[in-house]
Design a protein around this nucleic acid. Structure first.
Lengths: 125, 125
DNA sequence: ATTATACGAAACCTTTTGGTTTCATGTCAA
DNA sequence: TTGACATGAAACCAAAAGGTTTCGTATAAT
C-alpha cells in the first residue's frame, strides 16, 4: 500500500547532499529551477536532474506556471525514513544494556549453521 | 563535535537495501560475516564490503573472536538521520496549510534575482 | 516579428558503486 | 602438522551516478 517505491526510493533520493539541500530550500516555498540552481555550484541541468530524482521519489511536486516549472516539497514519503529509523530506537535505548550483555555473555551457540564455536573465546575487544 | 562524518556518511550508508538489512540482522545480536552473508544472494566478500561501509559510517562495531570477526550494531549515528528528517516534520504537519497558501497566493515577487514574474499565472495544477 | 528566458531531452564523459574471483594469512580441529 | 574454516585485500568489471554541453521548444517581453 501507499506504493511509495516507483523507481527511486526515498533512502536513495535523500542520500545525496545536493538533494537534501534542495528539499530544505523548497521547504520554505515553491521555486522554479533557475532560482534553485543559483544556490549550487553546478549547472541548471544538473539541478534539474536532481529534481527529477526527488520527484520520482515523490518528495517534490511540480507545476507549470507560464514558462517556468515550480517545485514544491512533499514531505510525505519521508515517513518511510521515519518508520525505518523508529525500528532502531529501542536499540538506541538499550544500548548500554546491549553492551553489557555483549561483554558478559560469550555469545556462542546461538548462530545457525556454519558455526562450531564452543570455544572459550579469548575476548579481545 | 561528535565527528560522525569520516569517509561515509550515514545517509549514504543507509541508502543501500542490503546494508539496511544488515543493520536489522545485527540489531538482534552480534554476528560474524559468514552468518550474515548466508542471508544474501551475493558473495561473502561483497557482504564484507558492505560491512566496511557501515563501519566507516560508525553504524557497526567489530571485534575479533578467534578466527572470526563479529559485527554488532551501533545505532548512534542514526541520530543524524532523525535530526534531519525531524526538521521536516513541521511541514508534514502543516501540509494542508501549505497547500492552502500555495493555492491562494500567486507566489510571485518573492524570488531573488532572475524572476520578472508579475503575471497572472494561469494556474494549471 | 524578433529576441530573450526557462526548461527538459539527449548525447557524452568520468567517477563511484556494487559485485566477482583469486589469493594470503591467521586460527581451529584432527 | 596437516587440512579446513573465516576473513580481508587486491585486481578487475559492468552498471549507475553525477556532471557537462548542446539543442529544441514553449512562453514572455520588446
Amino acid at each position: 500500500m501507499t506504493a511509495t517505491a516507483s523507481k527511486h526510493d526515498v533512502f536513495q533520493a535523500v542520500a545525496d547532499p545536493t538533494r537534501r539541500q534542495l528539499l530544505k530550500l523548497l521547504s520554505d516555498q515553491e521555486m522554479p529551477v533557475t532560482v534553485l540552481s543559483s544556490h549550487f555550484p553546478m549547472s541548471r541541468t544538473a539541478v534539474s536532474k536532481h529534481l527529477r530524482i526527488l520527484s520520482e521519489a515523490g518528495l517534490v511536486k511540480e507545476r507549470k506556471v507560464g514558462r517556468e516549472t515550480r517545485y514544491r516539497l512533499d514531505p510525505g514519503p519521508l515517513q518511510e525514513l521515519k518508520d525505518w529509523y523508529s525500528y532502531f530506537e529501542r536499540f538506541w535505548e538499550n544500548k548500554m544494556a546491549a553492551l553489557q550483555h555483549f561483554v558478559e555473555s560469550d555469545g556462542s551457540e546461538r548462530f545457525p549453521a556454519p558455526l562450531t564455536l564452543v570455544e572459550k573465546e579469548k575476548e579481545q575487544d
